[in-house]
C-alpha cells in the first residue's frame, strides 16, 4: 500500500535547480533509501517532505495528507532526524528526550518500548550533556528523540554520516525493528554499500531521480558482464584495458578495477596478453550500477 506519494516536485535556489521534477512513491512500512552524493538534493527533498520547505512546483501526500494544506497534521505524525545533530548541547540526554516527549504531549514511558533498544545503550549517560556525547551516542539520542512520539513516518537525513562502521551496522538493524513496528522510513545516505539494506531505493544525482527500484532489481538489471581485474600496477592496467576494449566501462575499485563489457570470460582472457594479472568474473556491486546509471543520463 502506498504511504507517501511525491508528484513532480521542483525546487530551485537562486537559479540552481536543487530538485527537478521529482516523483516517486513509498509503500507502507518500507525502508526507502535515497542514495546519492553530497549536493544531489537529498536534504532538500527530505526537508520538503517534512513540510519545512515549500516546493516551487508539485506536491506530495503523506498518509493521505496534503503536504501544502495539512502540514499541521503532518507534523504530528512524522519523526525527523536532520543531518546535523540538532538537539540541545547544554541539556542532558534525559532532558532532551523529556523535552521532545513533552512538546509532543506524550511521556517517555508511553513509547519507551519503542526506543528501549537504542536508549538503553545511552541510558547510563543520561545525566551527561548532549554536547559531550560521542558521535555514535549523539546519533542514538537523536533517533530516540525522533521516535518518542511514535511517528508513522520517519525521515532520516544521512543518519550514518560520520558514524563508525559498527555503529552503522547496529543502526540499520534498529531501522529494521522499526519497520516491523509499522513505521514507514525514508533514509538518505551518500554510501552506496548501505543501499542494500533498503527495501527500495532511489538513486539521486544533481536534483534528478535516476532510478527507483529494489536493490536486487537494480543489480539484476545491470546489462554487462563484470570482471574484477587485479594487477600490481592498477594505473597502467586501466590504460591497457581502455585500449583493448574501447567500449568497456572501467572503474577503479580500491586496489583492483572493475571492467564492464559484453565480452564473455573466455573472450576477455583471450584479448589480454599481459602477465601477472588476475581476472575474475564477479556480480556487480551497487556502486557499479550507480556509476553506470549516472553515466547514462
Amino acid at each position: 500500500m502506498e504511504a507517501i506519494r511525491v508528484n513532480n516536485i521542483t525546487k530551485s535556489y537562486e537559479n540552481i535547480n536543487a530538485l527537478s521534477n521529482v516523483s516517486f512513491s513509498i509503500n507502507q512500512t518500507e525502508i526507502f533509501g535515497l542514495i546519492g552524493p553530497d549536493g544531489a538534493g537529498k536534504t532538500t527533498l527530505i526537508r520538503i517532505l517534512t513540510s519545512l520547505i515549500l516546493p516551487d512546483e508539485g506536491n506530495a501526500y503523506i498518509l493521505n495528507l496534503d503536504l501544502k494544506k495539512d502540514y499541521k497534521q503532518i507534523r504530528k505524525i512524522i519523526g525527523y532526524m536532520p543531518q546535523r545533530f540538532s538537539l540541545y548541547m547544554d541539556l542532558s540526554v534525559e532532558e532532551n528526550l523529556q523535552f521532545y516527549a513533552e512538546i509532543f504531549g506524550v511521556s517517555i514511558k508511553d513509547n519507551y518500548y519503542l526506543i528501549e533498544p537504542i536508549y538503553k545503550q545511552i541510558e547510563p549517560y543520561k545525566e551527561r550533556k548532549a554536547g559531550k556525547l560521542s558521535g555514535g551516542m549523539k546519533q542514538k539520542l537523536a533517533l530516540s528523540c525522533a521516535l518518542i512520539h511514535r511517528p508513522k513516518f520517519l525521515l532520516l537525513d544521512e543518519p550514518t554520516t560520520g558514524v563508525d562502521a559498527i555503529s552503522r551496522i547496529e543502526f540499520w538493524e534498529m531501522l529494521k525493528n522499526y519497520q516491523n513496528e509499522g513505521i514507514t522510513i525514508l533514509v538518505s545516505t551518500p554510501y552506496m554499500d548501505e543501499a542494500l539494506q533498503c527495501n527500495r531505493l532511489a538513486f539521486i544525482k544533481e536534483g534528478k531521480i535516476l532510478t527507483v527500484a529494489s536493490p536486487s532489481e537494480i543489480l539484476n538489471n545491470y546489462p554487462f558482464n563484470i570482471y574484477d581485474i587485479k594487477n600490481e600496477n592498477t594505473y597502467q592496467t586501466i590504460e591497457y584495458f581502455k585500449k583493448i576494449i574501447p567500449d568497456a566501462i572501467i572503474n577503479r575499485f580500491g586496489q583492483s578495477l572493475h571492467c564492464s563489457t559484453q565480452l564473455s570470460f573466455d573472450e576477455i582472457i583471450q584479448a589480454t596478453d599481459i602477465n601477472n594479472i588476475l581476472i575474475e568474473k564477479i556480480e556487480p556491486t551497487i556502486e557499479d550500477c550507480f556509476l553506470w546509471i549516472s553515466q547514462q543520463q
Binding site: 553530497d38 554520516t161 560520520g162 577503479r252 556509476l291
Partner: peptide
C-alpha cells in the same frame, strides 16, 4: 572523500595514486 560522488571520488584517488607514483 566521505560523501562525494563515486565518479568524482575515483578522480580524486587517481590524483593520489599519481602523487604516490
Amino acid at each position: 572523500t566521505g560523501g562525494v560522488d563515486p565518479s568524482v571520488r575515483r578522480n580524486f584517488w587517481d590524483n593520489i595514486y599519481q602523487a604516490s607514483i
